[in-house]
Design a protein around this nucleic acid. Structure first.
Lengths: 274, 274
DNA sequence: CGCGACGTTGACCTACCTCAATTGGCGTGG
DNA sequence: CCACGCCAATTGAGGTAGGTCAACGTCGCG
């Protein structure tokens, strides 16, 4: 399922409104290449992409970088705000992007007010982890042409059911906001080699990648070349998630949530939003 | 933090006992190389490694495989049982291993009875995701020698605070249950090349890898070679997790958990264990 | 009109792969 | 106790996918 599907299935209409109002209220624009967060720092916000793409990357001391994840519109970047002391990766705007940044009090208030929200957040994290495993597989096992093709397939499919905030069409075409250098950083290849690889995909599969648009004339053959098996995207499992999530989270919809928050940072207590 | 730290901090003594009793009751042994689960099938159990190592791997149609994660003693393999319809990866015993397999009703009952358990499970999943990102970085950016060294560093550190079920000492030595072929599958290298790489590590860093034991005379220098930065393991953050987790999960410790379970598989309802 | 970002091309190089033996350790059975 | 067989580790020779370096082209924008 897409993140939107999860949201729609698990949140009540009221929760959804509250969630989206908070996002709009905290929207911020970032120019291409601007870091939203540095690696090693204490997480400052729960981030939700509203438009544009955002990348998580890890940088080694000598400058090498690996993009480890892409966050498309509507997706939550991570739960670091709630769970870790220092983020191990940085976050950057792939292109001009609009991102909602919810501070600790705002995010905590939302979670407190929307009993289903923690389910949604954790499930989105679990989906992200599944994608992450596939990326590891790609970089570890697939050849250059397979990697690039696989990335294309994944991003097409991930955008397919992003009605609402996203901006993708069905059938073989979608937004593609990465430069070739960024594709290189995501696939563990060189920018030069990515270029040659794309040309090869153009010739052999008619794939077109221009003006931030991707067109795939024959998705099936590209998927076959890339050994793309969409199982890991768990599409259409929102219903299952809803059930399993409820089990896992003890039906938090029924729990009385206390307006309490640990002050372990020495920060202010949360306001308990109504 | 290690998974054990999370467990110790977040579960009440009673919950811990219940948890461990369930593990013991459902322990099963697997010979080396035996699959605990195939990719593409419906998850059958919540698995917890008791002894030995377990690997998650993804296999491509032509046979290439990538080990995407290692589960050490005490760790939960994944939450697929609760969250997805078909697992995208397979699970295999790296060596003879003992694994607790909790079926849906047993696992659901545990989660229902132990209010903090869902926190523990989700946080362990989040930690696993962080490790996964580092693996992607490794395979994408690090050279062969860096990859192997990094894996060694990670596994040493991950075993350090595994008192209890685990069997690791501090200071530069730990169990290492992978064959060179398995290291190759985890690092995206060839078995042959892994062999040469290890020899190089032996000569230049005195690293010894024999008889399922790893010895690292100079951890600092190996870590530096590998660009190993343990931030991503989030050690010693169990306290933080406890707080943040509570916020994220709405202090489930206080919630009244209903002995209810979705029957979306058409399975039996859960018994509500006392 | 000129600058900067992105894409494209060519020549050369090397880290890692492939294939194919060979060695060593160890458990098992005779 | 030795012989066999299996599995993991090791070694060698040769090949290639992809990296490196260095231009050059092209497009959009101020």
């Amino acid at each position: 399922m897409s993140f939107h599907q999860i949201l729609n299935r698990l949140l009540t209409p009221g929760e959804r409104m509250r969630w989206e109002a908070a996002l709009v209220r905290n929207a911020r624009d970032f120019a291409k290449g601007v870091d939203l967060a540095q690696q090693g720092e204490r997480p400052r916000a729960l981030r939700v992409v509203l438009s544009g793409w955002v990348a998580k990357y890890r940088q080694l001391p000598d400058g090498r970088r690996q993009i480890v994840a892409l966050c498309l519109p509507g997706e939550v970047c991570d739960l670091d705000l709630f769970t870790v002391m220092r983020t191990a990766h940085a976050t950057v705007a792939v292109r001009r992007a609009s991102v909602a940044e919810l501070g600790l009090s705002e995010a905590g208030g939302l979670v407190a007010d929307c009993p289903h929200l923690s389910q949604v957040l954790c499930l989105s994290e679990i989906l992200a982890a599944s994608i992450q495993r596939e990326w590891t597989t790609s970089v570890g096992q697939r050849s250059a042409i397979e990697r690039v093709a696989h990335l294309m397939c994944e991003l097409l499919v991930r955008q397919r059911d992003e009605r609402g905030i996203g901006s993708a069409r069905l059938r073989g075409a979608c937004d593609f906001l990465l430069t070739q250098s960024q594709i290189a950083e995501a696939t563990g290849l060189t920018q030069v080699h990515v270029n040659r690889t794309i040309q090869q995909l153009r010739q052999t599969h008619g794939v077109e990648l221009r003006n931030l648009r991707l067109e795939i004339p024959d998705f099936a053959s590209l998927a076959s070349l890339a050994a793309f098996d969409p199982t890991y995207l768990h599409q259409g499992e929102a219903g299952h998630f809803a059930g399993g999530g409820a089990a896992l989270f003890g039906r938090s919809g029924e729990s009385k949530v206390a307006p309490w928050f640990p002050g372990h940072f020495g920060r202010d207590q949360l306001r308990s939003a109504s």
